[in-house]
Write a protein that binds this DNA or RNA. Structure first.
Lengths: 202, 202
DNA sequence: GACCTTCTCACCTACGTGTTAAGC
DNA sequence: TCGCTTAACACGTAGGTGAGAAGG
């Protein structure tokens, strides 16, 4: 069953699944926002994927690309995101290489692959950080690349549930509340930002 | 100059250098000790090496092996380590695979390679931790392995300066004092363990 | 003035230290 | 008792949060 010809490996078709889809969908319903800072800010939720269909003994790299999915700049007015203004020139390629790269197919398929450490910025920074235009809309896409053999992409998988607008400060307070509710690092703000429909004492 | 034949790559001779030799030597002079715990304990100092002489485009893994260098169990008596008792059966192979593995020769040669995250234990634990026999003497050795092509070791480099006795609690208080003096994580104990020949009044 | 960005801050998570007392 | 191991602990490092004030 397991052919070893390079020809066979190149034809393998990776399958990709997004984890935490329910949480992502709740942010998507509100129009998600991600903070960008000079020194780089992590994403929350985290893009986390299950991968299958790779050759266990072949070598791959996993890349997360951030694609600006429309031309206009966005603006938050009266509780709503509306297109407006002139678009910024799209920055250089926004591609994060997963730090486990390169690695065997068996490694990528063993456990879900987390992109927790990717950092978003609005300044040209030291390597490893992703520069985005503030107030523009992005969609993350996963690329699986086989090492050697021309490095051409084996597959590309888009995550529409993970679309977001890059911001330097949160605009929609419902987004803020949902981030605080689920991100352990924001636990300090749990008391003050609880939804009014919950027990608000204490 | 750069031949691409596999035959050539296999013949390349990696060169390895140990960093922080001066610090390691100071511990060696006292007979170094490393704590082992159930949940795993990091080493201090950290084994850190510079690597050169690899094929930049070939793929390698770096392994740190802990070799039990003599048969007897050691005992700390009257400020001295003396051999004694019967030796434990040597445990299964104690080999730590650097988490950047596998990677290109260019990656390993770009910056010094740190083994800061290796954890030493005295219990059979979840993977990734190195089990050692307490009160036995060990020497770390670095193996450079080329991926594919039979996985046979390209080179093996021993670090006699890094020999240590595994312990569950420090025996020589001079070792303790030197660890506290240089390990940032032990800064809480700097006041109480200062050498008497230094200014001891804050 | 309105909008967007930057900086500092308190407050967390997460975990690496040797100490100490208890366990065996 | 003695020797060795374990677990709880206080106190650090390192760095991820949004808040809020200040800057442009």
């Amino acid at each position: 069953m397991l052919k070893t010809e390079t020809e066979h490996k190149l034809r393998m078709n990776p399958r990709v699944g997004l984890e935490d889809k329910e949480l992502w969908s709740r942010f998507q319903a509100l129009t998600n926002e991600m903070i960008v800072t000079k020194s780089g800010r992590r994403m929350f939720p985290v893009v986390k994927v299950t991968v299958s269909g790779l050759d266990p003994s072949a070598m791959y790299s996993l890349l997360l690309e951030f694609v600006q999915i429309d031309q206009h700049r966005w603006k938050y007015v009266n509780g709503e995101w509306v297109p407006g203004g002139k678009p910024e020139s799209p920055p250089a390629s926004a591609v994060y290489i997963h730090s486990d790269s390169p690695n065997f197919g068996s490694h990528w398929m063993r456990d879900p692959v987390s992109f927790a450490k990717v950092k978003l910025t609005n300044k040209t920074n030291g390597s490893g950080q992703i520069m985005l235009n503030s107030l523009h809309k992005y969609e993350p896409r996963l690329h699986v690349i086989q090492v050697g053999s021309e490095q051409r992409p084996l597959s590309c998988h888009a995550f529409p549930e993970c679309q977001f607008i890059a911001v330097t400060a949160y605009q929609n307070e419902e987004v803020t509340a949902l981030k605080i509710k689920h991100n352990p690092f924001a636990k300090a703000f749990l008391d003050t930002k609880e939804r009014p429909d919950l027990h608000s004492s204490r």
